[in-house]
Amino acid sequence: CHSECLGNCSQPDDPTKCVACRNFYLDGRCVETCPPPYYHFQDWRCVNFSFCQDLHHKCKNSRRQGCHQYVIHNNKCIPECPSGYTMNSSNLLCTPCLGPCPKVCHLLEGEKTIDSVTSAQELRGCTVINGSLIINIRGGNNLAAELEANLGLIEEISGYLKIRRSYALVSLSFFRKLRLIRGETLEIGNYSFYALDNQNLRQLWDWSKHNLTITQGKLFFHYNPKLCLSEIHKMEEVSGTKGRQERNDIALKTNGDQASCENELLKFSYIRTSFDKILLRWEPYWPPDFRDLLGFMLFYKEAPYQNVTEFDGQDACGSNSWTVVDIDPPLRSNDPKSQNHPGWLMRGLKPWTQYAIFVKTLVTFSDERRTYGAKSDIIYVQTDATNPSVPLDPISVSNSSSQIILKWKPPSDPNGNITHYLVFWERQAEDSELFELDYCLKGLKLPSRTWSPPFESEDSQKHNQSEYEDSAGECCSCPKTDSQILKELEESSFRKTFEDYLHNVVFVPRKT
């Protein structure tokens, strides 16, 4: 048989008469490798580009789960590009990614509803959504962080984005990388972005840091009482949809009607710091009717980097990364020049730590249904340095008659930039024990000054392991946590139920 035959053949030295091919099969003959313009397919066939392209389009058009959109890589027609490569849609070739590779997620039936953290986790790592997304989240724990972890990498949506009755959302900033909504599939009414009845939605994105392009379709905003109209108009300008909307697409009466839409800028007039305090004062603000001013709200939190936005980490279910302080308005003076500047002394802060701070007014709604208010920009203030805590785990070892090696770990709280350490030492008198000992005694162990690591005695271990207080009263049991108490109650309830079950099964009433 021919060298490319495997198993047997019907005619000697003829690659077209093989029972099976050793390498690849091409047009009725066995070959060692697939010549151009053919590609290896499933490690035994040679196919042309049209064959591989037909497989790709067949799966793409069917949208069946589990099928493969075949691509070409290293002269092979394979189910998908290997790690580190992405497909070129024009020629199906796998090309190296520039940075992290995109991950295209194809949605069944063309859309997916995100109504819980669990459903959001199914899209973790996706960068391109081939379909439409509907966000409908009523509640949950730590929602802002969970949504950002699972949806934060999405850069492109081919269909539309719909935010509907998501009472738990305060902001859409968890879509931190969303840059493009194509609108290839539109919501009824030709809408590519749809926001309806979101009672706590206050911000779409921080438009000073976020760009969003909507290729096709219109915007729809109705019944978002805490979303200011200025935020919607800003989205029109940034996304390129200005002029597409009709009169009733953006409701003037049901958007922002319960919001404090600040239209003035508060400026800080005085800032002073110490290692654990920050004193702030800002310019006074009074609405047209000074009785509408209820006070100020001061927001602050630790910020290692200057990239904080107002609604980071917030949701309507209680999660809030900001510390909020309510401040009463100052006494009002008739003389504008003698107006008191409101302020606040922030206490209990960490030394040498940068804080993000902003302040906003708290006002009631005027009778004319106009909203007044003022808010400052987010500023960054760093507390002063102070003395560091003591170095940890000092170790001293003498390696000769004239040297001592000293080692330690950095302090747990540096409280500033540590530039150097101060080492103090003092000579001590020799131990009298060394002169009084009889060095001729056998088995004498000389006193040693070398360091030995501390260890816990058996008594201390027994005390720590004991669940009861000892007789001397030195140790006591740790208080039980809520989960331990709940577990004990469940076990007790189970024992009672099981005992009742045994009584009912074992003891049967005697027939009379």
Rank of each mutant, 00 (worst) to 15 (best):
V104Y: 06
L107C: 12
D115I: 03
T118D: 06
S119W: 03
S119P: 05
A120F: 05
Q121K: 10
E122C: 03
G125K: 13
T127K: 05
V128C: 06
N130A: 12
S132Q: 03
S132R: 02
I134W: 14
R138A: 05
R138C: 02
G139R: 08
N142L: 10
L143S: 14
A145G: 06
A149L: 08
L151P: 00
E155Q: 11
E156L: 05
S158K: 08
G159D: 01
G159K: 01
L161V: 08
L161C: 05
L161A: 02
K162R: 08
I163Y: 00
I163A: 02
A168R: 15
A168S: 01
L169H: 04
L169M: 08
L172I: 14
S173V: 06
F174M: 05
F174Y: 14
F175T: 01
R179Q: 06
R179P: 00
G183S: 03
T185V: 15
T185H: 15
L186T: 05
L186R: 12
E187P: 07
E187L: 07
I188S: 09
G189T: 04
Y191V: 08
Y194K: 12
Y194N: 13
N200A: 06
Q203V: 06
Q203K: 12
D206K: 14
T213A: 08
T215M: 08
Q216S: 08
K218P: 11
K218Q: 04
F220A: 07
F221N: 00
F221A: 15
Y223A: 04
K234C: 14
E237S: 08
V238Q: 08
S239K: 03
G240P: 05
T241K: 11
T241E: 08
K242V: 10
G243K: 15
R244Q: 07
Q245A: 13
R247L: 10
N248S: 10
K253F: 10
K253E: 12
K253T: 12
T254N: 14
G256P: 03
G256D: 03
A259K: 13
A259G: 07
E262A: 12
L265P: 15
L266T: 03
K267Y: 14
K267G: 04
F268K: 00
S274W: 05
S274D: 14
K277N: 15
L280K: 00
E283G: 15
E283T: 12
Y285P: 02
W286M: 06
P287F: 04
F290Q: 04
F290P: 15
L298N: 00
F299C: 03
F299D: 00
F299R: 14
Y300I: 10
K301R: 11
K301L: 07
A303S: 10
A303W: 10
P304S: 06
Y305P: 09
Q306A: 14
T309L: 13
D312V: 07
A316V: 10
S319Q: 05
S321D: 15
T323W: 15
V325K: 15
I327G: 01
I327R: 02
P330K: 08
P330Q: 11
K337L: 11
Q339K: 13
N340K: 06
P342F: 12
P342A: 07
L345Y: 14
L345I: 10
L345C: 06
L345P: 05
K350N: 05
P351N: 03
W352S: 14
Q354P: 08
Q354A: 08
Y355K: 01
T361E: 12
L362G: 03
V363G: 14
E368P: 03
T371L: 13
I378N: 01
I378L: 13
I379N: 04
I379G: 02
Y380P: 00
V381A: 03
Q382D: 04
Q382T: 10
D384G: 15
A385K: 11
P388M: 04
V390N: 14
P391I: 05
P394F: 02
P394M: 09
P394S: 13
S400T: 09
Q403H: 09
Q403Y: 15
I404Q: 09
I404N: 01
L406G: 02
K409R: 09
K409A: 11
K409C: 14
P410R: 07
